[in-house]
Amino acid sequence: MPTEASICKIQIGEFRNVDPDSLAFAFDALKSNDPQTQNCQLEIKMISAEAICQSNHHSYHPAEANFYACTICGDGIGKLISGQELEIASIIMETVQIETMDETRKA
């Protein structure tokens, strides 16, 4: 039975150098040549960054407006706990049953 992808969900973190419009453009160019992907919709979810500051372990959103420093104590990023995603979250596949000649006649 033929299957085709109907939705592809992608997550892009704020701390990745990936432009969603460019990705969508490339996706559309690539999918059109393949019957299994030509009807596939791309859903892009942007994930905002969340940092833990180095000295005081505050959780904050590192933003340019605050020079990426901790909004509570001014310390720098100790680690990022989100914002570095670049992944396919899921693909929805549809199994399409093509009506055969026989079935059409029965109906």
Binding site: L86, A89, S90, I92, T95
Partner: peptide, 15 residues
């Protein structure tokens, strides 16, 4: 008729 399967992948695109 069609069936829908939602495959949860979390596949790294630059794997």
């Amino acid at each position: 008729m069609h069936e829908i399967a939602d495959e949860h992948l979390l596949a790294n695109i630059l794997a």
